[in-house]
Design a protein around this nucleic acid. Structure first.
Lengths: 178, 178
DNA sequence: GTCTATACCCAGATAGAC
DNA sequence: GTCTATCTGGGTATAGAC
């Protein structure tokens, strides 16, 4: 049951965010009672943390794998962006907001560490090996910018999600001005 | 009282988002009772809409003014971005999420129209008059990308907010690659 | 492990007195 | 216009039986 709860919770947290997802709702989908969840988890916050821990592990592994497979800088970044979009159909901004404003600060800090290691680091590694980057561009900053852009296309509902993300990343590569 | 309620509601909606702001909280700050609010507004959703209507009007006017004052493309865009950052200390993403997932679809549509007219249009006008934009770049798309970036620096808590936003916009102008 | 029952709190909204 | 009282419904969490 433990893993099933995490499965359902992951989906709902992704779609609705932390506060708009209730333990009742999770229980209902699983066909169990709401208090039952409290046999498996101390409280709602630890469910959230465990969901994110599991997800981060998976994402970190897959991002690193993908970056090894592709050859050029642009291909690596695009492949990683597409993966995040497909695995993560929700806004990272919502997540960040939840983390900062709803969870207690101890949990928040642990979640930020998860993100740095699993999401940010694979991208930073790719940037570190690329020679064609403009000298005035700071890699840390650029990776953060890239995440902002990718995040915006995670919960976009339309059919053209993937092409939009591609167009966005290309704009990120080459800018708007001549 | 009507305007006072909107003042307080604006601040709270900005900081906390729609669902995490309660009518009780608004009332308490104003020193009135919670049901009193329902004399002035039909329900919570109309408060949100009126807050956004008032804000959009102001923002639309000021963005247009600012774009007229500055001379170069880069200066115009930066001035408008700084204004949004200073007037809007909250995440537009949170707002978009609230609009799409919490409000009823009729209200959502009206709010989207507000945004198109007051926020997007002034930027589109600036892009329309600029000759240095790369031919493969679509203005609509670029403006949306710019909003994504600006939004990310609205609720950033740090001291370096303004410099970060500037750096971000510059990356948007020139890209990461040579 | 899963259940029922329930405590407690907070939300949005309405009725009706003043 | 603002109040008190209250309805209804939702939330997290705990106690204790099976």
């Amino acid at each position: 049951m433990y893993e099933e709860i995490l499965d359902v919770a992951e989906e709902l947290f992704m779609k609705q965010g932390y506060s708009d997802t209730s333990t009742r709702q999770i229980a209902k989908i699983l066909g169990i009672t709401q208090p039952n969840i409290y046999y498996h988890f101390k409280n709602k916050e630890t469910i959230y943390y465990q969901v994110m821990r599991r997800l981060s592990n998976e994402v970190g592994k897959n991002l690193t794998e993908l970056s090894a497979k592709a050859t050029s800088f642009e291909e690596k970044i695009l492949a990683m962006a597409f993966y995040l979009q497909q695995r993560h159909p929700f806004s990272l901004f919502m997540m960040m907001h939840d983390i900062q404003h709803t969870l207690n600060s101890e949990t928040a800090e642990k979640m930020f560490t998860l993100w740095s290691d699993s999401y940010k680091k694979p991208f930073l590694d790719v940037f570190a090996n690329e020679k064609q980057i403009r000298i005035s561009v700071d890699s840390e900053f650029a990776v953060r910018q890239l995440f902002i852009l990718i995040s915006a296309y995670l919960d976009s509902p339309e059919e053209r999600r993937k092409e939009n993300l591609k167009q966005s990343v290309q704009l990120f590569f080459y800018g708007v001005l001549n």
